Simulated assay, not measured.
Amino acid sequence: MRGERRDGRRFSGLERRSPNGYRGGMTNPPLRAASARHPALPTPRQWLVVLLITLQLSWVLAALSSGPFLSVLLRIGFIGVLLLLTYTASGTLRRRWLRLLAVVLMAPLATLAIFLLTEPVPAKRALVYGYIMLAILSSVIGTLATLVALRLERKAHERALRLRQERERDTLERELTAARLRLLQAQIEPHFLFNTLANIAALVETGSDNAGPVLRHLIAYLKAAMPRLNDADATLDTELQLVRAYLELMHMRMPDRLQFSVRVAPELHGLPFPAMALLTLVENAVRHGIDPSLEGGRIEVGGQADAASGRVSLWVGDSGQGMSESAQPGTGLANVRTRLQAFYGPGARLDLHEETPHGVHVELTFTPRSAA
C-alpha cells in the first residue's frame, strides 16, 4: 500500500463545562428529580400487596371462625397497616435484620392493640386464645413478607447499581472516544499546512508565474478553513467546500496535470461528518497519486445513499500513479478509518482498491447517526 498524506485539524468543542461542573457535550449525568413521597411512607405497590394479603387472610379466617367477614377484615387490615408502616419507617436502619425484628415485634403489639380496642375486658378465654393465635399468625406472615420484600429491595438496589455503573462506563467510553478523536486530528493537522506551504515554496523556487495566484488562493482557502478548525458540528457540506477549495488550489498549481469533479447527492450535504476526513483522502490522492505521475490524472469525489439499507457511500478515486508495492502504509488512512468508526460506530468502513489500468479508489461506507 502506498504512503499517504497525514493532515487534518484539531478536534475540539466536545468538552465544555456545564454549570454543574461536569464536562458538557460528551458527559451530562442525569439529575434525579426529588420525590414528593416521604421515604417512610409506603409506595402504592406496597399498599396493593398488603391489601391482597389482607383480603385473602380475612377470607380464610372468616371461613374457619364462622365470623362476619367485615369484622375480620377490619382487624386483619389494622394489623397489616401497622406492619407495613413499621417496615417502611424502619427503612433508615442500616441492618436488615433490625427491620425484620421491628416487624416481628410489631405483630403481637398490633394484635394486642386491636384486641383492646374492639373486645370487652375481661374477655372470654376462647376469644383470648383466638387473638393469641392471630398474633402468632401475624408474626409468621409478617416475617415471610418482610424477607421477600428485603430480597426484592436488594435485587432492585443491585440492578440500580449495575445500571449506574453501565452509565458511568458508557460515559467514560465516550470521553475516551472524544479524546482519541482530538489526538488523531491534532496528529494530522500540521502535515496539511506544512505540505501546502511546501508546494508554494516549490513554485517560488522555480520562478513560476503561478506562485502569486496560488498564494492568493491559499490565503483564501485558509480563511475558509481556519474558522472550521474548532467546529464540532461539521457537516458534509462544509467538508465539500474545503475539498473544492483545495482542488482548485492544486489545479492552479498543475493545470495541465490535474482535473477533478465533485458530485455528491444534494440530500447528503446536511449529514454530520468528521471534519477534514474526506479532505485527507483527497490530499492523499493529489500527493501520492497525481504528483508523482508524469501524465497527471483525474480525481473524482462522489457520494450517494442506498435507499434500501440507509447506508451512505463516499469515495475519492484518482487515475494517478497507483499503489506502489514497496510503499509503506502511513497514518492518514488509519486515522480516517478510526475517526469514522468513532463518529458513526463500528459498522463504518474504509475500503481501498486499485483501479485499472492505474489509480486508487478509496470508499467510505457508514450509516448516518440519525438512522443508526
Rank of each mutant, 00 (worst) to 15 (best):
residue 1 M to T: 08
residue 2 R to M: 03
residue 3 G to D: 13
residue 11 F to P: 02
residue 13 G to P: 01
residue 16 R to M: 06
residue 18 S to H: 11
residue 31 L to N: 14
residue 35 S to N: 14
residue 36 A to I: 13
residue 36 A to S: 15
residue 44 P to S: 11
residue 45 R to Q: 06
residue 46 Q to C: 02
residue 47 W to K: 07
residue 49 V to P: 00
residue 54 T to S: 15
residue 56 Q to H: 08
residue 64 L to M: 14
residue 70 L to T: 10
residue 71 S to F: 11
residue 80 G to V: 07
residue 81 V to M: 11
residue 91 G to R: 12
residue 92 T to D: 15
residue 93 L to S: 10
residue 97 W to H: 12
residue 97 W to G: 10
residue 101 L to S: 12
residue 105 L to F: 14
residue 110 A to P: 05
residue 118 T to C: 13
residue 118 T to S: 15
residue 125 R to M: 14
residue 127 L to K: 09
residue 133 M to I: 06
residue 138 S to T: 07
residue 140 V to F: 13
residue 142 G to F: 07
residue 146 T to I: 07
residue 149 A to E: 05
residue 151 R to N: 05
residue 152 L to D: 10
residue 154 R to L: 13
residue 155 K to W: 11
residue 161 L to N: 12
residue 169 R to V: 00
residue 173 E to M: 10
residue 187 Q to S: 07
residue 190 P to Q: 09
residue 191 H to A: 10
residue 195 N to C: 01
residue 196 T to P: 01
residue 201 A to P: 01
residue 202 A to R: 09
residue 205 E to Y: 08
residue 207 G to V: 02
residue 208 S to M: 04
residue 210 N to E: 10
residue 215 L to P: 04
residue 216 R to I: 03
residue 217 H to F: 01
residue 218 L to Q: 06
residue 218 L to I: 04
residue 221 Y to R: 03
residue 230 N to E: 14
residue 230 N to L: 14
residue 234 A to H: 11
residue 235 T to E: 08
residue 235 T to L: 06
residue 236 L to R: 04
residue 241 Q to T: 13
residue 246 Y to I: 01
residue 257 R to H: 09
residue 275 A to G: 08
residue 277 A to E: 09
residue 280 T to C: 04
residue 285 A to N: 04
residue 286 V to Y: 00
residue 286 V to N: 06
residue 288 H to P: 00
residue 289 G to L: 01
residue 291 D to T: 13
residue 291 D to H: 08
residue 292 P to A: 10
residue 305 A to G: 00
residue 323 M to E: 13
residue 326 S to D: 15
residue 330 G to M: 03
residue 331 T to C: 02
residue 334 A to F: 02
residue 337 R to D: 03
residue 338 T to K: 04
residue 339 R to P: 02
residue 343 F to Y: 14
residue 354 E to L: 06
residue 365 T to V: 03
